[in-house]
């Protein structure tokens, strides 16, 4: 693969019904590039959870996927309320999702832990009142 493939999606806040479209697009692009299905699934999980977080918590934002020779780097960026306590947010079962989101099966407090578990490299930066940036990298040759 010569030039990197860059995909960028604007995700609208609170629009639950379109969530998954960007993740599916990223997964299909990786599949077309011949990336193994186990890696495609891991990236799909990361992308979907990040997308849902942008919808539920971030008030919308941008999801990017940069695909190079040996890795895909995902970035999710929003200008939402930010996360006061990242350690708490990373704890399985902790969620600040609304009642409505929970009724739809979101807000299990598993999104960020799912992302971390499926990433080879993971980082999250957040500032209250300013927004959140999430970085996740998956290498193609690692299983």
């Amino acid at each position: 693969m010569a030039a990197p493939v860059c995909l960028e999606y604007r995700i609208e806040g609170n629009d639950f019904m379109v969530a998954g479209a960007a993740s599916n697009n990223i997964k299909n692009t990786l599949k077309m590039l011949g990336i193994s299905s186990s890696v495609c699934t891991r990236v799909a999980i990361i992308a979907y959870e990040a997308e849902i977080n942008l919808v539920i918590h971030g008030g919308g934002g941008v999801l990017k996927a940069e695909i190079t020779e040996d890795r895909v780097k995902l970035t999710a960026e929003d200008e939402g309320p930010g996360i006061a306590d990242i350690e708490k947010a990373m704890t399985e079962g902790f969620s600040t999702a609304t009642e409505y989101a929970r009724e739809m099966g979101f807000g299990a407090g598993m999104g960020l832990p799912n992302i971390k578990k499926n990433s080879d490299e993971f980082n999250i930066e957040s500032e209250v009142g300013k927004g959140t940036r999430l970085y996740s990298t998956v290498f193609f040759n690692k299983q």
């Binding site: 019904m17 998954g20 993740s23 599916n24 699934t41 799909a44 999980i45 979907y48 739809m104 099966g105």
Partner: peptide, 12 residues
């Protein structure tokens, strides 16, 4: 609802 399809597609 629609997100059920999203999960089913992504996880095959």
């Amino acid at each position: 609802h629609l997100n059920v399809a999203a999960v089913a597609v992504l996880k095959d």
